[in-house]
Design a protein around this nucleic acid. Structure first.
Lengths: 240, 240
DNA sequence: CGCGGTGTTGAAAATTGTCAATAATTGTGG
DNA sequence: CCACAATTATTGACAATTTTCAACACCGCG
């Protein structure tokens, strides 16, 4: 639970265009960088923050992979998102000064602490930072809207296809292959996020392999026919 | 599509504690009020804003009732929320300067325009307004997390129970009865929001009536056993 | 090398969806 | 104000998708 302090956080971080607004002046950049003075390592399986805990910082993922989830009292889990490097966690904590979900590392990870009060202060002085914060929150709202569409209107194969395309797209932005990836989560976690049981996820993977759309070796996924996958995820195109 | 201009918007509005931060100084209150200088009437069925349209304002509902939805190209709809007086719409537009969903009035309504650039400016000068904006966005994120739990992990009867309790709770805050309400949406719209077909919604209503939990006359709902409804919505309590 | 966690697959069950008929309600125009 | 049409809601019978339960295979690690 200890938090190490570093001198410089952002200058040498190749994710800064994801975390920070572009076009900051040298001076403003330094002020923001000063704000991001603490990092924390989170080992696989460890909880970064949990429901009910006091909210004081947002967290930017420097490296690694997380899930956020809600747990009901009767033990049901609902995963609300998978987060990768450059993404921000903890926005749910702002409204009530307490986190309302849990964030758990799915691999050994490192996060930068973004003390919320300092962000507010600085955002008042740097308009582009202010707008950036708003955009990050708005983006999360739009993402969740998309998940609602997925959960509310799509079938198992459509959900999984959309999920895989989403993941690979985000990996592509970060410079990874757009055809291959290694999943960080179990079938059960995928199913949980998508509102399906793990067996359904497994079966759907098998069907995609049968159809020659994917190659699957456990968690290693290779997309053979990206267009076919897109077609499954977006039935509207199919209607042409 | 015309927008009328009024002198005073917030002073005489009994929803201001929902829209605006509390504890504003007289001076700051006036500045905020000046910002909210335009209103617009939206008749039942009319679209307030739609996907793709340029984003320039948030909208606060002064009176009436809305739904927001996503439409896929193949004609599928997903309702992402129902909004009532005092609630804010349009947060999805910030990230890309364009709305990503549609807002449709479910009854004759009136909204206040909150020009986004002006909000940003003023938020830089009034910390409590800044924090209030952040809280509104954070609250929306938390709400959507809850919907994900509902859609991903709950069964038809649980979904409907949670939905009804949510609606009646929000109405209660606004001074309405906590046991009776008139729904503003069709069974199809309820089902769409909850990831169910309208027949399933109808059947579930009938079952609740059978069990003596509700009285239902079309859209008029009376909650006879609120505890039983809570029990259906929150199975964890049942596990005691 | 064996064990625990993870993943796959089959068969049966359950929930929800689909299709269809009917009823109730609301809106519209004469 | 009434009649008719259109929309909305209810209910039944059957179908489809997904879940449940179970058995087994695979992988990584101590």
């Amino acid at each position: 639970m200890k938090t190490e302090t570093f001198k410089v956080a952002c200058s040498n971080c190749n994710l800064r265009e994801l975390c920070l607004p572009i076009g900051l002046s040298e001076k403003d950049f330094q002020r923001v960088e000063q704000l991001v003075s603490q990092r924390r390592k989170v080992v696989r399986g460890q909880t970064l923050f949990r429901n009910g805990e006091k909210f004081e910082s947002l967290y930017a993922i420097r490296s690694g992979f997380f899930k956020t989830n809600l747990m009901t009292e009767d033990g049901r889990e609902q995963i609300t998102g998978f987060q990768m490097a450059g993404e921000i966690m903890g926005l749910d904590g702002i409204v009530n000064d307490h986190f309302t979900c849990n964030a758990i590392a799915l691999e050994n990870s490192e996060v930068c602490l973004l003390p919320y009060r300092s962000i507010e202060e600085l955002a008042r002085e740097i308009p582009s930072l202010q707008h950036h914060v708003h955009k990050i929150m708005s983006r999360e709202i739009v993402r969740e809207n998309g998940v609602m569409l997925l959960l509310g209107s799509m079938q198992a194969n459509e959900r999984l296809a959309a999920f895989l395309l989403n993941l690979i797209g985000r990996l592509k932005v970060r410079g990874y292959s757009q055809s291959e990836m290694v999943l960080r989560m179990t079938r059960e976690e995928i199913g949980n996020y998508l509102g399906l049981k793990l067996e359904t996820v497994s079966r759907t993977f098998s069907k995609f392999v049968e159809d020659g759309i994917l190659e699957v070796q456990q968690r290693a996924i290779k997309i053979i026919k990206p267009d076919a996958l897109t077609l499954v995820a977006n039935p509207e195109i199919c209607a042409i």
